[in-house]
């Protein structure tokens, strides 16, 4: 009976998580277009619903009813597989992400995470690394020069930025003496990690921008020179899969920044519910992502590689050494 209850609880949590992750890109696209509009002195979507609030729904219906086109020379199996491969890892990662401590609902203690892995951080980085397969397969299978170029760029970019990203969080693991994300947040209950690890956060956030393939590092889908990069040939719902995946990764990098460097659900000054604190911080980081997008131009490809290998990697290594010397 207890086992059944626990399994049911996990199933409910996973269902809620999937629903949240599938639905969250809708308001995020609206928000992104609104922010883009207002930063460029436009209004953004205004027609569908109040101030365009129903625009994502209209877009979704449009994408669902569009022709699902597969190029004649494409590798049909890989072409169909790639969007799923791109979509699945960001969803899987959220299994290990905690959203708060336990809450009591109807006299039952319920934890706000699906599982508290003791190697959660390692799991997150391992699984998110798999996302690159979707991109590479998508670009390769489409049999288009733009798509191949885009996926080759993504391949190089993701591999070179995962290293500084991984090194940047080593300092956090040293401070918390644990790789469990729940323990990392608990360790920050007094002082947030950003105080001790400003360089680590900088490296992590820049590498996160590159991981999420957002401006200024969106070389993979550089509209100006590559059409749409690896998803040039995708249309309809398969294209929507790639877009959802992109937004979930943005959410993931925001959530990781909050958990690793900004104290997770620990609040300061104002006593708000922990979950609300967490949501506010994540919302702020998502805003920062969009703010970056509409402020900065795109880096050139050699500059991108130079930043990754010549700046971020030495910085993250120096951060590890300094953290090790000071806190050991």
């Amino acid at each position: 009976m207890e086992l059944l209850f626990a399994l049911g609880l996990i199933a409910i949590k996973i269902a809620l998580l999937i629903a949240m992750l599938l639905l969250l890109p809708l308001p995020l696209t609206w928000l992104e277009r609104k922010l883009a509009g207002h930063m460029q002195q436009r209004m953004g979507p205004m027609r569908v619903g109040w101030h365009g609030l129903l625009q994502p729904v209209a877009d979704g219906i449009k994408l669902l009813t569009k022709e699902d086109h597969i190029p004649a020379e494409a590798d049909r199996f890989l072409f169909k597989l790639a969007p799923i491969l791109a979509l699945a890892p960001p969803f899987v990662v959220f299994v290990a992400i905690p959203f708060g401590e336990t809450v009591s609902v109807l006299n039952a203690e319920i934890t706000l995470y699906v599982s508290n892995l003791n190697v959660a951080l390692l799991f997150v980085f391992a699984v998110i690394g798999l996302e690159v397969y979707g991109v590479i397969f998508g670009g390769w299978a489409a049999n288009s020069k733009y798509a191949v170029l885009g996926s080759l760029r993504t391949c190089a970019q993701m591999i070179s930025y995962e290293i500084p990203m991984g090194f940047a969080v080593v300092g956090v693991v040293m401070l918390a003496q644990s790789m469990s994300l729940v323990d990392i947040v608990r360790a920050q209950s007094d002082v947030w990690n950003i105080v001790y690890q400003p360089v680590g956060f900088l490296v992590f956030f820049v590498a996160g921008l590159a991981e999420a393939q957002r401006i200024p590092f969106d070389l993979a889908e550089a509209e100006g020179d590559l059409g749409a990069g690896f998803h040039t040939e995708y249309s309809g719902i398969r294209f929507a899969f790639f877009m959802v995946s992109e937004y979930v990764i943005v959410l993931l990098v925001s959530v990781l920044s909050v958990i690793l460097f900004f104290g997770g659900w620990n609040g300061v000054l104002i006593p708000l519910p922990p979950l609300l604190w967490f949501a506010l911080k994540v919302a702020f980081f998502i805003y920062v992502f969009m703010w970056f997008r509409f402020t900065l131009p795109r880096y050139r490809y050699d500059q991108l590689m130079a930043i990754g290998w010549k700046v971020l990697l030495p910085l993250s290594m120096a951060n590890i050494i300094v953290t090790g010397i000071v806190f050991s």
């Binding site: 460029q40 002195q41 209004m43």
Partner: peptide, 8 residues
């Protein structure tokens, strides 16, 4: 610019 009035 985000808080300036849109010209649309």
């Amino acid at each position: 610019y985000m808080f300036s009035r849109p010209v649309t």
